[in-house]
């Protein structure tokens, strides 16, 4: 309504040759603006399309396995088959985060707030380099170096803590003869996710407003108190995002797990024994070559479970962050 009125008014204006305001303010959107807008909208859409395609593939091919009679399935009833792997996935990722997150935050803080500039730069490069090592190499390192190296430690842990009340759940024997347990796999995973979490956390910590750091120092804070008062609260959302990316890698990591872990189909918190729960991704890699018929669908359905776990973890993290938004410093 308003626009037609405006249109009518502008048409009824006398065409004054000396007034060229109209000709200078009329114009079309520029080509560059259009191209860039479409390009970025297209990219945004593309990622949704890819996600939808993956989800459709997973759901579509999972349904036959989920609805079939357990008798017909290569690996037996679906949930009985999938649950130990789902557990193993979450458990291995949890353990790896337990190792990786404190170390990553420590390295990131060292680089951003403690190290002399030149050392910090060098260290930053080394961390980035670590992210470029293929997971097969980490797998080989896990089997050949780490597993034999940590086995004596495992024996000691089992001897000293294996019989204690609560610790016994985790450290009970018998100790695996090869050292290729879920604890070793989690350590390898931790080394793999370390560079991701470190690199992002470092960037976030470096973004801390100088003003907040000085506010803290001027109150008489030591370096560490300043970090706790100004740097960590400011960086928390970024560090959580970093951990989510790291966790995503840990949950989905296939090769290193498939190589390092000697798997069994169990749900167990024991860290040192030869029977370890496999992860979903590790199991798919190991079982896929021999799967046929509905067995393939069954493996894909476990992939769907992994997809849902990852989604749930990410949404929980976002929800936690959103609930603290008022104090985030975004305003």
């Amino acid at each position: 309504m308003a626009s037609t009125e405006t249109g009518a008014t502008s048409e009824s204006l006398p065409q004054d040759p000396t007034n060229d305001l109209q000709s200078t303010i009329h114009g079309k959107a520029r080509l560059g603006d259009k191209v860039f807008r479409n390009l970025s909208t297209g990219s945004g859409t593309l990622i949704l399309v890819i996600l939808a395609a993956v989800a459709t593939f997973l759901v579509g091919l999972s349904i036959p396995a989920l609805t079939a009679d357990p008798e017909e399935l290569q690996y037996g009833a679906f949930w009985a088959y999938a649950l130990p792997f789902a557990f193993g996935t979450v458990w291995a990722s949890f353990l790896s985060m337990l190792f990786a997150v404190p170390v990553a935050i420590g390295i990131a803080l060292f680089i951003s707030h403690y190290a002399p500039r030149r050392l910090a730069q060098g260290l930053g490069y080394v961390i980035d380099l670590l992210a470029a090592v293929p997971s097969v190499v980490f797998g080989l390192w896990g089997i050949n170096t780490l597993a034999p190296l940590v086995r004596p430690l495992y024996v000691w842990l089992a001897d000293n803590f294996g019989d204690l009340p609560v610790l016994g759940w985790f450290f009970a024997g018998p100790v695996s003869g090869t050292g290729r347990t879920i604890l070793t796999a989690a350590m390898v995973l931790a080394v793999m996710v370390l560079p991701i979490i470190t690199a992002i956390s470092r960037e976030v910590f470096l973004q801390t407003p100088r003003l907040h750091e000085e506010a803290s120092l001027a109150l008489g804070a030591t370096r560490w108190e300043m970090i706790r008062q100004a740097v960590l609260p400011f960086g928390t959302p970024g560090v959580v995002s970093a951990c989510m990316l790291g966790l995503g890698r840990a949950l989905g990591e296939t090769m290193a797990i498939a190589m390092v872990l000697s798997p069994a189909s169990v749900i167990s918190f024991e860290l040192l024994t030869p029977s370890n729960p496999n992860t979903i991704a590790g199991n798919i890699a190991l079982a896929f070559p021999e799967a046929f018929g509905l067995g393939v669908n069954q493996l894909i359905a476990t992939g769907l479970v992994l997809f849902v776990i990852t989604l749930a973890v990410n949404m929980t993290a976002r929800w936690i962050l959103a609930s603290r938004k008022e104090f985030s410093g975004a305003n």
């Binding site: 001027a218 985030s328 410093g329």
Partner: peptide, 13 residues
Amino acid sequence: GMVFQRPNPFPTM
């Protein structure tokens, strides 16, 4: 004690 050019309360507190 010191007060700065721009107000800098700790945003998370």
